[in-house]
């Protein structure tokens, strides 16, 4: 797996310089999941995010009747798990590999090491996370209006 190529495609690392991307690629660890395997569970403590290299993952959340419902399907070069990294809360959803999946794993500690070395690069990572969250909020707002 060419980590650098994958990271340069990911919206999480948009606007990062090559040097910053190289540094991040050294901090990321590849993880493999087989179809059906859980990446993390709703309610777990989490302080890391994942970038999808190949395959697909589904984001599942329990409804009021405790039944798991799929709320999103993600593929490369998307990322997930960033919410717990930012708000330090428990995982808000379960993520399960829908197919055999390759991911890049970046922990909060490794992200902090990136910040020490590349402050501007780190700021852009945070901006990119904020962009994704803002985009999701817009989509949710639109859906809310449609429902009403």
């Amino acid at each position: 797996m060419e980590k650098l190529a994958v990271l340069s495609e990911s919206p999480l690392f948009e606007m990062l310089s090559n040097q910053e991307l190289e540094y991040v690629s050294e901090l990321c660890r590849p993880r493999r999941f087989t179809a059906g395997q859980i990446v993390f569970e709703e309610g777990e403590l989490g302080d890391s995010l994942y970038v999808i290299v190949s395959g697909e993952v589904e984001v599942l959340r329990r409804d009021a009747s405790a039944e798991q419902r799929r709320i999103a399907l993600l593929g490369p070069p998307m990322f997930f798990g960033e919410m717990s990294l930012i708000d330090k809360e428990y995982r808000s959803a379960t993520v399960r590999a829908r197919t055999d999946t390759e991911l890049l794993h970046l922990t909060a500690e490794n992200l902090a090491a990136f910040r020490k070395q590349h402050r501007d690069g780190f700021t852009f990572v945070v901006i990119n996370i904020a962009r994704v969250l803002s985009s999701r909020l817009r989509e949710s707002n639109s859906k809310l209006v449609e429902i009403r």
């Binding site: 919206p11 606007m15 999103a72 399907l73 998307m78 962009r131 994704v132 999701r136």
Partner: peptide
Amino acid sequence: RRFEDYFLRGRKGSVISIRPAV
């Protein structure tokens, strides 16, 4: 310069969206 490009000269990156659940 990168911050200027992003915040003052319009967005460099693409709009991010998530594929809805099927």
